[in-house]
Amino acid sequence: MALDPTLLSILACPQDKGPLLLVDDELLYNPRLHRAYPIEDGIPVLLVDEARTVGEEEHEALLARAKGSAAD
């Protein structure tokens, strides 16, 4: 289930209040803090305690996947 583009445009990271990248309708990613927020059953889980920290290698992969998603 894809996130509504309008919803995506207003969602923000709960930690730094900045914009998030959508990665393959699987997660929302904050590249500034290297934090990934899950999307469960089409619902973003924007809780700091539910986010996971992303290492440098995965960070690069997520950025590439997010750019690919934006091109669709």
Results as ranks from 00 to 15, higher is better:
Ala36Ile: 08
Ala66Leu: 06
Arg52Met: 01
Leu62Asn: 06
Asn30Ser: 12
Pro14Asp: 06
Glu58Met: 09
Val23Cys: 00
Leu20Trp: 03
Pro44Glu: 06
Cys13Ala: 04
Pro5Ala: 11
Glu58Leu: 11
Leu7Tyr: 06
Asn30Val: 01
Thr53Lys: 03
Val54Gly: 10
Ile10Ser: 04
Leu11Ile: 08
Leu7Ile: 09
Leu62Ser: 05
Arg35Cys: 12
Glu26Cys: 11
Pro38Val: 04
Leu11Cys: 07
Arg35Asn: 12
Val54Gln: 10
Asp16Ala: 09
Ala51His: 00
Asp16Thr: 13
Ala36Cys: 12
Tyr29Lys: 05
Leu27Glu: 08
Glu56Leu: 14
Pro14Ala: 07
Glu60Pro: 01
Leu63Lys: 09
Met1Val: 03
Leu20Asp: 06
Ala70His: 12
His34Pro: 04
Gly68Asn: 10
Tyr29Glu: 05
Met1Lys: 00
Glu60Met: 09
Met1Ser: 01
Ala71Lys: 15
Asp49His: 08
Leu46Glu: 02
Leu47Trp: 05
Asp25Lys: 00
Ala12Thr: 10
Leu3Tyr: 00
Ile43Met: 15
Arg65Thr: 06
Asp41Ala: 15
Ala61Gln: 13
His34Asn: 15
Leu28Gln: 06
His59Lys: 07
Arg35Trp: 11
Ala66Lys: 04
Leu11Asn: 02
Ser69Cys: 13
Leu47Met: 13
Glu26Gly: 07
Ala70Cys: 12
Glu58Tyr: 09
Leu21Trp: 07
Asp24Gly: 02
Ala70Asn: 12
Pro31Glu: 01
Leu3Glu: 00
Arg35Tyr: 12
Gly68Arg: 09
Tyr37Val: 10
Val48Phe: 04
Tyr37Asp: 09
Gly18Ala: 11
Met1Pro: 02
Lys17Ile: 11
Asp4Thr: 01
Gln15Cys: 12
Asp24His: 02
Glu57Met: 14
Ala71Val: 13
Leu8Ile: 03
Ala36Trp: 02
Ile10Lys: 01
Gly42Met: 13
Pro44Phe: 05
Ile10Glu: 04
Val54Thr: 11
Leu20Val: 08
Gly18Cys: 09
Tyr29Val: 02
Glu40Cys: 13
Val45Asn: 13
Glu40Leu: 14
Val48Cys: 09
Glu56His: 14
His59Gly: 09
Pro44Val: 08
Ser9Phe: 02
Leu33Glu: 14
Glu56Asp: 15
Leu22Gly: 01
Glu40His: 13
Arg65Glu: 13
Gln15Ile: 15
Leu22Ala: 05
Glu60Ile: 11
Leu8Gly: 02
Ala61Thr: 10
Leu28Trp: 03
Glu58Trp: 04
Ala51Asp: 00
Asp25Ser: 06
Met1Gly: 01
Pro19Phe: 09
Ser9Lys: 02
Asp72Lys: 14
Pro31Trp: 01
Leu22Arg: 00
Ile10His: 03
